[in-house]
């Protein structure tokens, strides 16, 4: 079974770490990732930029509205994600519009730039499961 582990914490508190503190946490996480990678368990890893960098495309019926800021409602649940490599935010919004059209119903698509992205290491068992 493939699992996505989604990390939640206070970005204000995390954002107030010094560079040294942040580096230390990254190293601690990296050590755990290495252990998982050796067992073939580690897939792609991403660290997102702050929510202030996010833009949200909201869909209601056939209408789409682009809003500044992160997805803020609690009526919907987190159902899935895509990682896209885009030229610009406009480009990312255009791609998101296509996805939103292909996806029935309403919902929202938060477009959040990635701060760190590590593709799945060699030997990730999930590749065979895909």
């Amino acid at each position: 079974m493939l699992y996505a582990i989604l990390c939640y914490n206070s970005e204000d508190a995390v954002g107030s770490w010094s560079k040294a503190e942040d580096d230390r946490v990254m190293a601690q996480l990296g050590a755990v990732e290495d252990g998982l990678a050796q067992k073939g368990k580690l897939g792609p890893v991403a660290r997102l930029m702050n929510t202030t960098a996010a833009t949200t495309l909201r869909k209601s019926g056939n209408e789409q509205i682009v809003l500044d800021g992160p997805f803020a409602e609690t009526k919907e649940q987190f159902l899935g994600f895509f990682v896209l490599d885009c030229e610009s935010l406009e480009d990312a919004i255009a791609a998101t519009r296509e996805l939103a059209i292909a996806n029935p119903g309403g919902g929202a698509y938060e477009i959040r730039p990635l701060r760190i992205f590590k593709p799945a290491p060699e030997g990730f068992r999930g590749k065979a499961l895909g």
């Binding site: 930029m49 702050n50 960098a53 833009t55 610009s88 935010l89 406009e90 730039p113 701060r115």
Partner: peptide, 13 residues
């Protein structure tokens, strides 16, 4: 730099 560029992209819209 990544954060700055992302914010400019947003603001320019």
């Amino acid at each position: 730099i990544g954060e700055g560029l992302a914010l400019i992209d947003k603001a320019m819209r």
